[in-house]
Amino acid sequence: MSDKADTVFDPNPPRRNFYGRRHGKTLRQSQKGYLSEDLGELRPRGITLQDNPDRHPVDPQAIFGNANPVWLEVGFGGGEHMVHMAATYPGINIIGCEPFINGVAMLLGKIRAAGVDNVSVHPGDARDLMDVLPDASIQRAFLMYPDPWPKARHHRRRFVTPEHLLPLARVMQPGGIFRVASDIPDYIRQTREQVPPAGFETIGDTAEAWDDWISTRYEQKALREGRAPHYVTFRRT
């Protein structure tokens, strides 16, 4: 592992600012049902200070009750990609992080419809999850159409900054794959610049989607508005 990412587990992470929305338009009754009936079973214990005040590391394999490889999706949006991956690769487990509760409700509906059972949902900041994941516990990670924060003074809020990338590198296995998709050229520029120094090497940088890709609603919106998607793949060194 890179020295930059080979850090000691911190049982008392610093307080952080959170940027972005947690709630949107009023949920439909069915979505409220998904949240009340399904989220509790899918939400991993030990992520928040309320249920892990001493911040003990959380074994992701214990979340699923098996030793299958664990993948991570940061900001799953409406959940299309996460559920597609869970259905396409039933021999893996995938944890999704999303603080926007409307997106969580959409994901839960898709999980019901697809009948997948190899998923876990953290309805909060991905940094909180990475705080308690053990070193080298994640085999693959996804950052699909993240919030672009287009204003220059907000670029530090993007996920592709050391504040996020160094913890991600710590929890990823050597040789693990990190995929990034975006339709914002400046986000891709920052991704190319910031990810490799955190402990990754670039192994793909193209306008062609991955073979197992499913186009999400965010990508379809980008295409309708004339923005070209781009796909970058990194390997943990």
Score class of each variant (00 low, 15 high):
57 P>R: 13
212 D>Q: 04
115 G>S: 07
200 F>P: 03
178 F>A: 00
219 E>Y: 08
97 C>Y: 04
126 A>I: 10
116 V>W: 00
87 A>L: 05
125 D>I: 05
16 R>V: 07
68 N>I: 01
82 M>E: 14
233 T>K: 11
148 P>V: 08
135 D>R: 13
207 A>K: 11
145 Y>P: 00
115 G>C: 05
32 K>C: 13
48 T>Y: 05
189 R>E: 13
34 Y>T: 08
220 Q>D: 15
15 R>S: 15
76 F>P: 02
137 S>A: 09
50 Q>E: 12
97 C>I: 01
99 P>A: 10
224 R>N: 14
15 R>N: 12
152 A>W: 05
108 L>V: 00
97 C>D: 06
235 R>D: 03
88 T>I: 01
147 D>T: 04
131 D>M: 03
68 N>G: 11
152 A>E: 04
207 A>T: 13
9 F>I: 05
58 V>P: 14
207 A>E: 09
14 P>V: 14
156 R>D: 09
173 Q>S: 05
179 R>D: 14
59 D>F: 10
8 V>R: 08
177 I>N: 04
167 P>M: 13
94 I>D: 02
119 V>S: 11
197 P>T: 06
51 D>V: 13
94 I>V: 09
234 F>I: 10
120 S>E: 01
202 T>V: 15
167 P>L: 12
197 P>M: 14
217 R>W: 02
157 R>I: 00
123 P>N: 12
221 K>I: 09
178 F>H: 02
85 M>A: 08
81 H>R: 10
105 A>Y: 04
97 C>A: 02
173 Q>A: 08
19 Y>G: 10
95 I>V: 11
